[in-house]
Design a protein around this nucleic acid. Structure first.
Lengths: 149, 149
DNA sequence: TTGGGTGCAAAGGCTTTGCATGTGA
DNA sequence: TCACATGCAAAGCCTTTGCACCCAA
């Protein structure tokens, strides 16, 4: 099944209309895995194929997809919300990857790890807090930037 | 030494003038440890003692203090930047506490842990990425909200 | 004295919303 | 057909900035 058809069904499953715009956004995001794009960047990218699309539609769509868990939201402190295609299956929270953010060049890399599961069970024991999702950002210097110095 | 005097010296050490407003903000934040206040909330709080203070001054001051490492910044996804008095000594990055954020009542709790040190050294080995700071947010349900359900 | 700091108001910049039009089911 | 979705423009909202005045050193 091609990706367009897959997204069409995915949208319908969630009670949404499978519009050209929504499919275009999903396709664009899924062909850029690991990139963490702002609404504006998504807009510019999608507009190359669908020049008629409006920025407001991009905002509405990513908010929708984010609520459904199809895409993941990332907040850095540059004032932009960023999105990437979900790595986990729908609703499967708690298995996000970690983000490695280079303080020098701004590049965002990812790292998969289960180390936090220990921490989460300990927190449940000690604090009575039941963790259902987590977000880890690691700031530092990437290989390339370290080499250049 | 009283806290006012302490903050006065702290500011001077950093080449800043020890103004009434800056000291008031520092005192307010330090008397509310563990609270994660927005600029507006800081403004409202400080204004009870210093009604003349301006919101712009609050923004300028928290930005300044944040750059100096005297206060810590926290970004949730509600569109506000939040601040709390620093827990680590100045410049001692990498020893922040983790944040437990209740999805039900919005309460933010903290948890101290060194578990990430393992992860960080592994990342350095595998990815060549040198971690200097991290931020961990754990979303879930706090003890009280779990009890109510 | 004097250069950094403050207060006020205006401007910025990202995101959301209102409304008329368009379109997938 | 018709309720949902889109596009455009305007509004919202948090934060920053310009500028004249003020005050800590």
């Amino acid at each position: 099944m091609n990706s367009q058809k897959k997204f069409k069904e995915l949208l319908k499953e969630n009670g949404l209309k499978a519009t050209t715009q929504r499919i275009a956004i999903l396709e664009m995001l899924s062909s850029n895995p690991g990139k963490h794009l702002t609404a504006e960047e998504i807009y510019d990218c999608v507009r190359q194929d669908y020049p008629e699309i409006g920025l407001a539609t991009v905002y509405r769509t990513i908010q929708l997809l984010s609520e459904l868990g199809l895409i993941e939201k990332l907040i850095l402190d540059d004032g932009y919300l960023r999105y990437e295609i979900g790595t986990s299956s729908k609703g499967d929270l708690g298995h996000h990857h970690h983000h490695l953010i280079c303080l020098h060049c701004g590049k965002i890399d990812t790292f998969q790890d289960d180390l936090l599961e220990n921490l989460e069970s300990r927190i449940k024991e000690i604090m009575g807090f039941d963790v259902v999702d987590h977000e880890v950002k690691l700031y530092g210097h990437c290989k390339q930037c370290r080499g250049e110095k």
